[in-house]
Nucleic acid binder design. Structure first.
Lengths: 248, 248
DNA sequence: CCAAAAGTGTTGGCTGTACACCCATGA
DNA sequence: TCATGGGTGTACAGCCAACACTTTTGG
């Protein structure tokens, strides 16, 4: 099919007007990894049902209505396109504006990082699918770039914030939490240190009740929870000083 | 003057079109601080010459042309509005889209963080002015929010990247560098550690020549330079492991 | 039915590194 | 005034050992 770029809209003063979309990179992590099968970081994609790139996988996206904020637009499209009701965490990633990124018409898209616990994952639509970030198929537009940015952002923040709470269930064992951290960071994590560091920082607290022992026996694990229920920078990077009170 | 919100543009399918602007938060830091007068972090602002907010200070901004990228648009507006030729460092910050942020017409703006060395600062236009971030005047629109985001971003990155090279001259003394770090972080920095840490990380190297002694005598300082000439993450946060080779 | 073994989870100790913060010394 | 080194303390990585509690296995 021929790609005919539409002429841009302009107002009376000649200022150009653009289509503006929101774009969601919704991630989940887990479950517990085993030596052979490490825990996975997955992203929610769906098959496009219209041109351009019809039939290809793409991130959920859609235009921003005149009266809504971009966050509201994102929530709406996730609900309409995927039946996904709530994001446990949502933050703006970046805005993509390359003039040629949409072959039909210049479209500016603002991408968001969304996180959900593994359990909450139930996309209704048949075209939607969780895919391992490590084995991402070809995506429409520049969506593969955004997935990379999302993973980088999450990887960076998981070490100095409590952002992992958005990927964990309300109560969890250290084995589960380890799986989440391993999936996010893409490498092995020492449970001893993970537990010690998070406890020392006051990020997690023991719930008290013991969980059930595994199928092959073993000591029943303690269950834990995050001490805060919303995102916070827990440990602003200490290099060059703890920096208690900036004057500005 | 009455604020009449313009009706939105829509295409044949009813998708809304928006004005899209770029917005620059251009910062510089220094010079050497003294006990009474700490080193300053300054932002470049200019007086608006038209409505809305005519007469108020604002960040440099302007619309994106159809064929240019947002980075090109930013560079163009900085040149046209302020006579500023080059940014030593430039990165996207965030996109502002609150429906009411522009009283005339919904305008989506993508903000950028720009850094220049103290010396390069010569805005030609008379309306342009360097202002201490600590004593920011009332700014038009939501520009004060963006300045806050810019400072936070810079503060975060100065500790685990070599981003300070964009604020420093090609060669500098440790006293100068200390001033830059103090201006950015808004607190005192121990030169001993600053020097040791940056040397250990291989971020800075001695140029060799000694600078001139200060006005009141004393040992002439060594001069230093950054070993790399472009932005790089030098020290991905080590908490939870140095993480050499993520598999994804 | 009971004891031992094997599996799993929790905690503490040890060594090494990187840094903060302070002080002393020397150019 | 600037540069450098030393000393102490904290936080963490990475490893290993000890211990706690379970199910399974073998008498």
């Amino acid at each position: 099919m021929p790609h005919v770029m539409r002429a841009p809209f302009r107002d009376q003063r000649g200022v150009a007007k653009y289509r503006h979309e929101v774009l969601g990179v919704v991630l989940r992590a887990g479950p517990v990894g085993s030596p052979g099968r490490p825990a996975e970081l997955q992203v929610l994609v769906r098959r496009r049902d219209r041109e351009p790139f019809a039939g290809k996988f793409a991130l959920p996206s859609g235009p921003v209505e005149v009266t809504e904020t971009m966050e509201e637009a994102l929530a709406r499209h996730l609900r309409e396109q995927l039946g996904l009701e709530t994001l446990r965490h949502c933050e703006q990633l970046a805005t993509l504006s390359d003039p040629g990124r949409d072959p039909f018409e210049r479209t500016i898209a603002t991408a968001y990082l969304g996180l959900v616990p593994w359990e909450d994952a139930r996309p209704r639509e048949s075209g939607a699918r969780w895919t391992a970030v490590a084995e991402l198929p070809d995506l429409a537009f520049d969506h593969h770039l955004v997935v990379g940015q999302a993973v980088d952002r999450l990887r960076g923040k998981v070490s100095y914030t409590n952002i992992a709470l958005a990927l964990a269930p309300p109560e969890f064992t250290m084995a589960t939490l380890r799986g989440i951290y391993e999936a996010v960071l893409g490498r092995e994590i020492d449970v001893t240190n993970l537990s010690r560091v998070l406890r020392r920082r006051g990020q997690i607290a023991r719930v008290g009740t013991l969980g059930e022992a595994g199928a092959r026996g073993g000591r029943p694990p303690s269950t834990w929870r995050f001490t805060e229920d919303s995102y916070r920078v827990t440990d602003p990077f200490a290099v060059l000083g703890p920096g208690r009170n900036p004057t500005v």
